[in-house]
Nucleic acid binder design. Structure first.
Lengths: 190, 190
DNA sequence: TTTTTAAAAGAATAAACGTTCTAAATGTAG
DNA sequence: CTACATTTAGAACGTTTATTCTTTTAAAAA
């Protein structure tokens, strides 16, 4: 029997997310990927085949382990509380780092249809999540009855991407929370 | 007397913006930059010194010719009308392309302090522009007196970056306009 | 027209990069 | 303990990249 490989794919993915967040896709060179992960070159290419495929897998891991659990808050359908929980979790995850998916959309989105499609699915899921929460909140009477649910959801979805960008430059978490409050205040019943 | 150079730096900058928007910084190779601009290699390095400096100059051109005229709307201090004019102009400029400055912030923002600083200045200017318009609008009675001007300005600034990202993936301009309306409606006096 | 000077074109260069290959090391089964 | 299969480490390879150099071309002043 042969020896078993020493590396833990999940741990590697975790570091890959950091590396791609720090340096972008093209800015992250194989040298650093090999050095900072517990990989050896051969293992890397046996496991992933190419740097490009490695990005896709990392993105998939990031979606599953970072984005999906946050979006999950919206899918609990607890109205406005879910939306607030979502933003709290989102700010914590993004602050000082930004969002890997959004970074890949801005870097590769024009050329790479795979990234485009992942990005669009993510936006759709957000949009549907917000709609569900807002409808629930309207039934509960916690948001104003007169708001246009789809339009507000579109606005919230857009806002989330703004957070992803601002998180890279923001000096403090505070301003992100203040912006969220300004966003939610007007739709909440007094 | 020697012959004069044939290239027009402004025209080149215009194309450079397109190239960097399409392929990102690292994704844009000198081969294409030389081929798509009316440049020859020697002229390029005589004029800019390096690809990196070329990016900075392109970014400066982009700020002056694309972003600044749009932000200018906010500096007219015509209250809510200025804000609406700003968003109309912004959506037109970004749709299907995204924002070069924001793309460079997401791609290079962690490593490159020059880009960081350009990005922060831009966000500050937006923030101040929104504050000026909102205060003016409050004096005119066109936005509600009870809103927290700084918080709403923070929210609008954040929203703008979300537009920059969504513009890359959005199918139609319509959804961007709808989101803007949802954003502005709650602060406008009935 | 001649001379001069710089631009244009693109070949050349050296470094960096993604990927593959080689040889040594090591865990496991018999 | 031996033999094997596979990992590990990192040297090697072929491309691609940014940058420089060389040669040819052409505008403009004398």
């Amino acid at each position: 029997m042969p020896r078993k490989s020493l590396y833990d794919v999940n741990a590697i993915m975790e570091q890959a997310v950091d590396i791609f967040l720090e340096h972008s896709f093209h800015g992250a060179v194989m040298e650093e990927i090999i050095a900072r992960t517990e990989f050896n070159r051969r293992g890397f290419y046996l496991e992933f085949g190419s740097k490009q495929q490695f990005l896709y897998d990392t993105l998939s891991y990031y979606h599953e382990h970072t984005l999906a659990p946050i979006v999950q808050h919206l899918e609990n359908h607890h109205g406005i509380a879910s939306i607030e929980a979502f933003f709290d979790a989102y700010i914590s995850a993004m602050f000082g780092r930004g969002c890997l998916l959004i970074n890949m959309v801005t870097e590769l989105g024009h050329d790479d249809t795979t990234i485009q499609s992942i990005g669009r699915h993510y936006l759709d899921r957000l949009q549907l999540g917000f709609i569900g929460c807002l409808e629930q909140a309207q039934r509960q009477g916690t948001v104003k009855a007169e708001i246009n649910v789809e339009a507000v959801a579109l606005q919230l979805t857009c806002f989330v991407q703004g957070f992803a960008v601002n998180s890279i430059l923001a000096e403090t978490k505070e301003e992100l929370h203040i912006a969220t409050q300004a966003l939610l205040n007007p739709i909440i019943t007094a």
